[in-house]
Design a binder for these strands. Sequence first.
RNA 1: GCCUCUGUAGCUUAAUGGAUAGAGUACGUGGCUUCGAACCAUGUGAUGGGGGUUCGAUUCCCUCCAGAGGCACCA
Length: 552
Amino acid sequence: MLKERVQQAIAEALGSTEFTLLYPRDKAFGDFAINIHQLKKLALNEQALVEKLSLLDIFEKVELVQGFVNMRVAYTEYLAELNAALRGGTQPAAPNPHAQRINLEFGQPNTHKLPHIGHLFSYAYGESMARLLAWDGHTVFRSNYQGDVGLHVAKCLYIFMQRKDDAKNLSTLEDKVRFLQTCYQDGSAAYDENSNAKTAIDAINKAIYNRDDTIHAVWEETRSWSVAYYKKFEERIGTTYDRYFFESETSDLGTKLVQEHIDSVFTESDGAVVFKGEQFGLHTRVFLTTHGTPTYEAKDIGLIALKKQEWPFDTAVITTASEQNAYWQVVKKAIELIFPELQGKIMHIGFGMIDLKGSKMSSRTGNIVSAIDLIEIVKKKCARELVKKWQPRGCRNNSHWGRKICLFKNLKQKKNMIFDLEQSISVQGNSGPYLQYTYARLRSVLAKAQYEPSALQNSTTSETLSSEDYAILRMLPTFSDVAHQAAVAYSPHLLCTYVYDLAQACNLLYDKQSILKAPQAQRELRLALLEAASRTIKTSLNLLGIDVLERI
RNA sequence: GCCUCUGUAGCUUAAUGGAUAGAGUACGUGGCUUCGAACCAUGUGAUGGGGGUUCGAUUCCCUCCAGAGGCACCA
């Protein structure tokens, strides 16, 4: 990768690696820069540095501006990078020396409820991270973890059994799952408002854990609806898993592990089994209830044991909404005490929760935007825009690419997100459709030119380049560094920013320069640039979990 | 009450301690007889307040203000 070659060349010239290579904020300054204050530790005078670096073939210009040593990479280097891209594509050149086995948990929809916009975010983020990590050379094991036992299921089944006759009329999977969501909402309300209902629901909860005959058949049937529904849903949004874990299989194991570590890790308190986090600067949490049922905490202990037994990992990444941040600090500590070999191997990523404009989203009260509904809305909106713009030009309607295009940015979400429908499904500006459009536009020109990728000769010089050509030329080689950073920092949005900038550079070239009618040398260069750019856009979008279409 | 996180243009947001704080959207203006106008150009507009560390702070520390989340049997 270009950055590494530059880093190496400078290190050799200086005889030191004690410097940080910066990307100048403004590309007009050059391609790389070093701040002169860093040179003090090298005991090197900046003029001497400029002179030394000027001798390197990899640069065509090195100058001192406002406290920075700015370096411009030689045009021939960029041409070589472009030729390499046309030959080899966009995969990393060398294996990652820090490659790990990473268990990545994301999605985590509970059964007996509907997926909402928050799940969509988790799926989008997780899918993107899985692809980025794999691209970066890691081996990724995709885990889903679904809550199919617990109080929420008991609340749902309590109402469900009262309305069993209504359920018989449900035909489609969608209807059945929507019905379960309603039961859950009403069950939650009953649990809070009515003490008899609360007692009954607690009993159902225990019966589910114990697999009592009174409830087991109903539990199994309704659970199977949800599981099938989520499978279909995941297929639809293009996510796959290596393993679906269920709370019904982690609860016994978790309970056992907690009981085995009473006194050494956990303490009994008021009939419950708790972990006293205060000694580690954390807080106390309940792992086994006074009813003897495991809480989410104990189940997560069971889950990590299963994960490590089935597929030994270097790092287990768990993504959740940020409301679980404090929870995970405690559980992580407990895990590390039970399994000392997992010290430092558990990583929790909490992202901001998604609120509806004006109110908190809650599946308990039904104040949610169902993920399915959202996808439909986006599809319709895109179809509508498409018809409006393109039908007068005799274009056919094509709406099937409407899905998976919203939420493409904001893939790093530390603070809460206000969900504004209009804003989120925008089809212009920094959005999925913009990138999709740009890609199709590039492919269209390349097809018209009947372009076949082939190595460029040095028939153009940096003088005959327009600034639009040059912008794309120098942007292309940074892709692998950006993708790598996105993987390392678990921040897919870095790639979003990059691919948007690249698309914008392509559209600008399109607007300012002619391509097909340009003189031969420029035409060849521009076609090569657009070919490489289109591949990079395609790869980037794939890494973000978005499939591109050649034509729209 | 205690702990954690977050405050950047009207709105949604970016910025490994580095240069003139970068985008999108909205609003104003201009550009299709021409390679795809879901495009491009251009204008207006921002680091919550106050201290500190540093050659240099959106970034680190303190404090105040504002918002969110968590803090024993939910997930």
